[in-house]
Amino acid sequence: MPATVSKFSRPLAFIGLIFFSSLSLYAKTDTVKVYSEKMQKSIPNLIISPSEYDEEETYATVYLLHGAGADYTAWSGIADLQLFADTYKLLIVCPDAGVTSWYFDSPEDPQMQYETFVTEELITYVEKHYSTKQDRRFRAITGLSMGGHGALYLALRHQDLWSVAGSTSGGVDIRPFPRNWDIAKRLGAYADHPERWEENTVINMLYLLDGKSMNLIIDCGVDDFFYDANKRLHQKLEERNIPHDFIARPGAHNHKYWHNSIQYQMMYIANCFANNAN
């Protein structure tokens, strides 16, 4: 089937361009470019909808974030996202966030403003062009590694947008890694801007939670280099009596672990959506 191109009128903040769609405009997997006014560039995303997508219905949405060194296609190579969309009757959105953005609005790099992109520009686009439940009770966000950090970071800072947040193998404490994964390029060197590192690491942001309005699922393999940080995050959540699911099981920082873990996370998210509907 030849690729089809559809153009949309450009709103004030963004423009979308669908390059490819299997079967129809909104069926199955769309590759969508969303224009970011904040960064003055178009950003690709995957949007997976149920095979029996019906515009007369509305769907809950899961934002699924990739890790460092990857892009918006990464999760499609790890798990069968179409199966999740069909099983749980939801939309899955996989944004591109640059190789090492860490989902910050970087004070150092105007081309790395991915907090604004995901929380404002992308959500606005998705909910304008897809039939979604436009209510935080039916939005979730999760991701792996850098994306695990990103999912919790964005959810904690924008609790009006999501009711469920997850992380698998997440970099939930960036401070032990001052020379890794370009974090210093996003926040400045730790030696020069320690306050930025302290304020923008997930493990220090738990004061934002009231323990009532956010469903949390966190997992990490016990052989993962991020395991210690995830265990400390779990302990801090317990100390603050913040309900959450924490799973530690054999596994390392790799596709095999993530392929397994995302199945549990999707089931957890779908159960939260079902509870929120009652």
Results as ranks from 00 to 15, higher is better:
P194W: 08
L17I: 10
L83G: 12
Y63N: 07
D54S: 05
G221V: 04
F104P: 00
H158G: 06
S51G: 10
M146Q: 03
P2W: 13
T201L: 11
M112G: 13
K38S: 11
Y125W: 13
Y125N: 14
I15W: 14
A252P: 13
A68E: 05
L64E: 03
L122G: 08
I217S: 04
S169F: 11
G171H: 05
E37C: 14
Y130H: 09
V5S: 12
A155N: 10
D160R: 12
A151M: 03
I218K: 01
P110D: 05
D210R: 03
Y26W: 15
F225D: 04
S24G: 12
I183E: 02
T116N: 11
T119I: 05
K185G: 06
A13L: 15
L156N: 06
I262M: 02
G69W: 00
E120N: 06
Y114M: 09
T100C: 15
D96I: 13
S21G: 15
L122A: 08
L23F: 09
A191E: 07
H158K: 09
M267E: 11
L81R: 02
L208R: 03
A165F: 01
Y63V: 06
L154G: 03
Y207G: 04
M112V: 13
R10V: 12
H253L: 07
H244K: 09
C94W: 00
G16C: 10
L187A: 02
Y35A: 06
M39Y: 02
D30E: 15
F20N: 14
K89D: 12
I203S: 04
I43V: 15
I262Y: 06
M1S: 12
N200M: 09
K128N: 14
S145C: 11
M39F: 09
T73H: 14
N275A: 14
E198S: 09
S131T: 07
G251N: 05
G143P: 03
F84T: 10
Y257A: 00
P2V: 15
N271F: 12
V34E: 05
Q113Y: 07
I183W: 00
F20L: 15
R10C: 12
A248H: 05
V118H: 01
K33T: 15
K133S: 12
S9G: 07
N215M: 09
P2Y: 11
F20M: 15
D182M: 13
D54I: 13
H259Q: 07
I247W: 02
M39Q: 03
K256C: 08
W162H: 04
K89G: 10
R240I: 00
T119F: 06
T142S: 05
D173A: 02
S51P: 12
Q263H: 09
I242K: 01
F138R: 01
D228S: 11
T73V: 13
V164Q: 00
